[in-house]
């Protein structure tokens, strides 16, 4: 039961903290993230959503509504262009759910699924912004200068944060009655 577990507080708090951390880290580590001509997109919020699905231990977190809420905040507050993240976040959650059906729950398959998620996320993001004229980078430059560094950064996030987040979710899901 989602409502009875500690996840009720831990999950939304973690989601929004990771969303804000994306912005704060991009600001603080800008010399690293946006070194010309490379640029990395920090996607902690996406990592949190994906790992929440893997670690929920049978407690059904309403992931899609939360993903939409996080997307609306990201759209309004950080990008100022409505309509992208509020659809993209839930889509990636659905993609994770779809892929997870075909793979075991090992670390390796999780990181592969996250890899596919980030590729899909960054590519759809690029394609949508290309269509509406926010960017005019060509596809080759996108692959080399944006997608590759973004993948590297987010896979490092995944490896570093996998065990901390797992133990956090274990703590939040084991004692159901609070």
């Amino acid at each position: 039961m989602y409502r009875l577990s500690r996840l009720k507080y831990v999950f939304p708090l973690g989601l929004f903290v990771s969303l804000f951390l994306d912005g704060a880290l991009s600001h603080v580590w800008a010399p690293l993230f946006f070194r010309y001509p490379y640029s990395m997109m920090s996607e902690l919020a996406l990592l949190w959503l994906v790992l929440a699905y893997f670690f929920e231990n049978g407690i059904d977190i309403p992931l899609i509504p939360f993903a939409i809420a996080a997307g609306v905040v990201a759209d309004m507050y950080s990008s100022g262009i409505l309509g992208l993240y509020m659809v993209l976040y839930p889509c990636i959650v659905a993609l994770t759910q779809l892929l997870a059906k075909y793979f075991s729950g090992s670390f390796l398959s999780m990181i592969m699924i996250f890899f596919v998620d980030v590729v899909a996320f960054a590519t759809i993001n690029y394609w949508a912004y290309y269509m509406v004229g926010v960017t005019n980078t060509n596809f080759g430059d996108f692959l080399a200068f944006s997608l590759a560094p973004t993948l590297a950064l987010n896979l490092v996030y995944f490896v570093v944060l996998y065990w901390p987040i797992q133990s956090l979710f274990n703590w939040a899901t084991t004692e159901n009655k609070v």
Partner: peptide, 15 residues
Amino acid sequence: AVLMRTPSSWQQQLV
């Protein structure tokens, strides 16, 4: 003071 930077490759934006 700067609060955050948009974590995106496509928008160079600060809040």
